[in-house]
């Protein structure tokens, strides 16, 4: 199944990827990022279709790869 990789060090918690994902496979995670907010986290539930929407909207290169 398709999946994405998120670099937590780069995530600035803008959550644009969460809103862009058509399958809602990204959620607000547990870890705290460099801005002091919770970073985005990928939920590998087998729903991801590898559409790249999250990677296209991510303004901080935090989504480092989309695999399908």
């Amino acid at each position: 199944m398709a999946y994405i990789t998120i670099d937590e060090k780069k995530c600035k918690s803008c959550y644009l990827c969460i809103n862009a994902c058509p399958k809602k496979t990204i959620k607000v995670g547990e870890k705290t990022g460099k801005t002091g907010e919770k970073v985005a986290e990928f939920v590998d539930s087998g729903q991801c279709i590898g559409c790249k929407s999250c990677a296209l909207v991510c303004p901080d290169l935090a989504i480092t790869g989309v695999y399908r």
């Binding site: 060090k9 600035k12 918690s13 803008c14 644009l16 296209l56 991510c58 303004p59 901080d60 290169l61």
Partner: peptide, 16 residues
């Protein structure tokens, strides 16, 4: 590369 732009800034996407 780690951008130094503010969270949600469009510059990051434009540069990419």
């Amino acid at each position: 590369t780690e951008y130094t732009f503010c969270p949600g800034c469009g510059h990051g996407v434009a540069v990419r």
